[in-house]
């Protein structure tokens, strides 16, 4: 028992040893380590996963889903590919600027947007949903869309949200319950491989 504790803490800390990298000392070590390992990028990530908590993402721009949807846009206008493959696209700054070159250019958030583009930078959107690598889940959007699952079923009603929030907790229970209701496979390798 005690031995188990030592081994476990050792494993958590051991997997996060930041490697020395003097050539890029100006950057936080955890991001520019010359090696890549799996599981958890930092000690923080490991601890958060262990406790089952996720920090609330801080978005660089207070993008409002509500306003865009109210203006008649569809989810798939920006999140292209959601019906074709595993992931939905998060648009790049160039895509936003196709409209915001002319629309609402005086708003402070749009000025931020334009500033990113002027600096040659993309917007560092932070993940809201998505599975940790240690969850070993290979989720694929396309079959869910084809099966007629509404976006809101997993992402909440975006018409009421400004900055996207994690309205639905994607626990395994949540997934399995819906799979059972719809006679979809609940074999482990349906999602875990």
């Amino acid at each position: 028992m005690i031995l188990g504790v030592i081994v476990l803490t050792g494993a958590i800390l051991g997997r996060t040893m930041p490697a020395d990298d003097s050539s890029t000392a100006s950057q936080p070590a955890a991001q520019t380590s010359p090696i890549f390992t799996t599981a958890h990028r930092t000690v923080g990530d490991a601890v958060r996963e262990f406790f089952g908590t996720r920090t609330k993402p801080v978005q660089p721009i207070a993008y409002t889903h509500k306003v865009h949807l109210a203006n008649g846009m569809q989810c798939t206008d920006c999140h292209v590919g959601v019906d074709q493959g595993p992931d939905a696209r998060i648009p790049s700054v160039n895509f936003c600027m196709t409209c915001h070159q002319v629309i609402a250019t005086d708003k402070p958030e749009i000025k931020k947007l334009a500033a990113y583009r002027a600096r040659g930078e993309d917007i560092p959107w932070q993940r809201v949903y998505g599975f940790e690598p240690s969850a070993h889940v290979k989720f694929n959007h396309a079959p869910h869309i084809r099966a007629g699952v509404d976006c809101a079923k997993c992402h909440g009603d975006m018409h009421t949200q400004t900055v996207a929030e994690r309205k639905v907790d994607h626990t395994m229970g949540f997934c399995v319950e819906c799979h059972r209701q719809n006679n979809a496979s609940v074999d482990c390798v349906t999602c875990h491989f």
């Binding site: 890549f36 799996t38 599981a39 070993h136 290979k138 875990h192």
Partner: peptide, 23 residues
């Protein structure tokens, strides 16, 4: 051990397959 890829060899990883960790 946790698998290690000297960067940028990690870019070869297949996104369709999990990367297994230590243990």
């Amino acid at each position: 051990y946790n698998p290690v890829w000297d960067k940028p060899l990690n870019l070869q990883l297949n996104p369709d397959v999990s990367v297994r960790e230590v243990g």
